[in-house]
């Protein structure tokens, strides 16, 4: 009985070993590339250049994830009108300008600004009235849009400007008093001609509000490179700059954007279905 039992157990053990599935190494099996894979990818896959392959795949993924905008993305035209509003609230000077911006790749933006500035002030406890008639100014510069991966409706910008203005100013109703010699005079200084060249560092944002209309805010830190002083004086106000000794200015503008190349975004053109083809024998 015991012998029969041992033989049966031995037979069962051998039978259970027979049911174990053998391990089949797949090292020699080569999976074909997915349909639609780039010819270059297939070539590198065959050559075993996996590092370059992974790098290319990563770049392709980024290209699919982030839109790439065309060279001529859009053109914006706007008007900066904050200072006339502030002048109504008591400010002594104002500059108003129109500006045109070419948006390239939704990243670099050459800017041209043209405007007019004027001033009139009679400071308390001072002996003069300063007037600058409406005079033109020009600025050229460029912005860099840090939100270049997002829609052009929303932009965060840093930029620079170079500004120039030529203008005339009057200082009138001057009262002069010399206590020792007991002199009391009044005089005017009129038609003083001047000009100024200055630079600006610009930080700002732009937000689309309705269809192609958007609002923009900038803060500008600026400094005068050169200005014309005469024997009659130095200008207090520079059109487009503001008071000569004030290093900061602000703008608030309304602008209209004309899209140029939204239909040609390269992200559309670079999808695998449009661009990739199977290699031909």
């Amino acid at each position: 009985m015991a012998l029969v039992l041992c033989c049966a157990m031995a037979a069962w053990g051998q039978d259970s070993l027979r049911h174990v599935s053998p391990v089949r190494p797949a090292t020699n099996k080569t999976l074909p590339p997915a349909r639609g894979t780039d010819e270059e990818v297939i070539k590198r896959f065959i050559e075993g250049d996996t590092t370059a392959l992974l790098d290319k795949e990563r770049r392709d993924s980024l290209r699919k994830a982030y839109k790439r905008y065309p060279l001529l993305t859009d053109v914006s035209v706007g008007v900066n009108f904050i200072e006339p509003v502030l002048m109504l609230m008591g400010q002594d000077y104002a500059s108003v300008d129109v500006h045109a911006t070419l948006n390239m790749w939704n990243r670099l933006q050459p800017v041209l600004e043209m405007g007019v500035g004027w001033a009139k002030t009679t400071p308390d406890d001072m002996n003069f009235t300063y007037r600058c008639k409406p005079s033109p100014y020009f600025k050229v510069g460029v912005n860099y849009n840090f939100l270049f991966k997002s829609e052009p409706r929303y932009q965060a910008l840093l930029g620079v400007r170079l500004g120039y203005s030529t203008f005339k100013y009057d200082v009138t109703d001057v009262t002069y008093q010399n206590n020792y010699w007991k002199e009391h005079q009044q005089f005017n200084i009129q038609g003083i001609s001047s000009n100024a060249l200055w630079g600006e560092a610009v930080a700002g944002i732009k937000v689309g509000i309705w269809r192609n209309w958007s609002l923009g805010w900038t803060i500008r830190y600026h400094g005068v490179f050169k200005y014309k002083a005469t024997e009659s004086g130095r200008p207090w106000f520079i059109p487009g700059y503001g008071p000569r000794k004030r290093p900061l200015s602000f703008t608030f503008s309304l602008s209209y954007t004309l899209p140029l190349g939204h239909g040609k975004q390269s992200s559309q053109a670079s999808t695998p279905h449009n661009r990739h083809t199977l290699p031909k024998d």
Binding site: M126, V171, V174
Partner: peptide, 13 residues
Amino acid sequence: IPYFASAECGAMY
């Protein structure tokens, strides 16, 4: 010479 120095200092000779 009539002279405008600045908004802070005013006009003078």
